[in-house]
Structures are given as C-alpha cells and as structure tokens.
Amino acid sequence: MITPDSIPNVTDERLCWLVLRDELRKRSSKLGMFGWISVFTSRGAAGAEIGADERRERLSEKMTYYSIAVDASAQTLSPDERRHLRTTAQVPEWFRPDVQRRYEEIRKRR
C-alpha cells in the first residue's frame, strides 16, 4: 500500500497503478459463474489443477485490462490532480469509476 510518506519516484501513471493495484486485484479475483462451475466440476487433483490454471489466466487477463484502463485514465489527470496524487497518494473521486468504465470497454473489444 502506498502512503504519502512512501511515494516512490515513478511516473504518475505508474503511481496510479500502485495506488489501485491491490484493490483491483481483489476485484479481479472474485469468482464469477464460470469460476464456480469450474470449482464444482473439477474432479480430483488434475481437474483442480486445470481449474486453478484457468482462474490464474483469467486473473492475469483482467489485471492486464485494468492496467491499460488505469494508464489511459491517468493520462487525463490535470496538473492539480497530479500534484494531489503526488502529495497524498490518492486518486481523484472520478478516477475509479473512469477506470472501471474503460476496463469494461476494453473487455468488450477483446
């Protein structure tokens, strides 16, 4: 977790990602209907391993989409919002919904 006392010397886009990464990982790792189906239908160790591999692959794909969305949203930050980000390690109120909107758009295109 990034705090105002531990803000690394990285780009604003990267800082936005570091601020949101853990939250987005939790959101991405929630099992959807397909995830629960794969958990219940896997038989034995081999089936469980295949199901786990599929879940990891989906998590990685979701996090990639989120990283693209965060980067795109961060590029629209105003100079004042960038200063606020740099001093508080917090993104503006509009940022999370904008990232989610962009994430959904990316998923629809893929």
Rank of each mutant, 00 (worst) to 15 (best):
Ile68Tyr: 01
Ala45Cys: 01
Trp94His: 14
Arg96Ser: 08
Ile37Asp: 03
Ser29Gln: 11
Lys30Pro: 00
Pro79Ala: 03
Asp80Arg: 10
Ser28Val: 04
Glu49Met: 10
Asp22Trp: 04
Leu77Gly: 09
Arg86Gly: 11
Ala74Ser: 15
Ser73Gln: 09
Tyr66Ala: 02
Val70Phe: 01
Ser78Thr: 15
Pro8Trp: 05
Val39Trp: 01
Glu23Ala: 10
Arg109Ser: 15
Glu61Gly: 13
Thr64Glu: 13
Val70Ser: 12
Tyr65Ser: 12
Gly32Phe: 01
Ser38Gly: 03
Val99Ser: 05
Glu54Phe: 07
Gly51Ala: 15
Val70Trp: 00
Asp12Thr: 06
Lys26Pro: 00
Asp22Gln: 12
His84Arg: 01
Arg55Met: 12
His84Ile: 09
Phe40Arg: 11
Arg96Met: 03
Glu49Trp: 03
Arg101Trp: 02
Asn9Tyr: 02
Ser60Trp: 01
Lys30Val: 12
Glu105Lys: 09
Val39Phe: 04
His84Tyr: 12
Asp12Arg: 04
Met63Thr: 02
Leu77Ile: 05
Trp36His: 15
Val39Asp: 06
Ala52Arg: 11
Arg101Gln: 15
Glu61Asn: 12
Thr41Ser: 10
Trp94Asp: 09
Ser42Cys: 13
Ile7Trp: 06
Asp5Ile: 00
Arg21Lys: 12
Glu61Ala: 15
Cys16Gly: 07
Ser38Glu: 06
Gln100Asp: 15
Glu104Asp: 15
Glu57Val: 05
Asp80Trp: 00
Gln90Lys: 14
Ile37Gln: 07
Arg107Ile: 14
Glu23Asp: 13
Glu93Asn: 14
Arg14Leu: 08
Tyr65Trp: 07
Leu59Asp: 08
Asp80Gln: 13
Arg14Asp: 10
Arg110Thr: 09
Val91Gly: 12
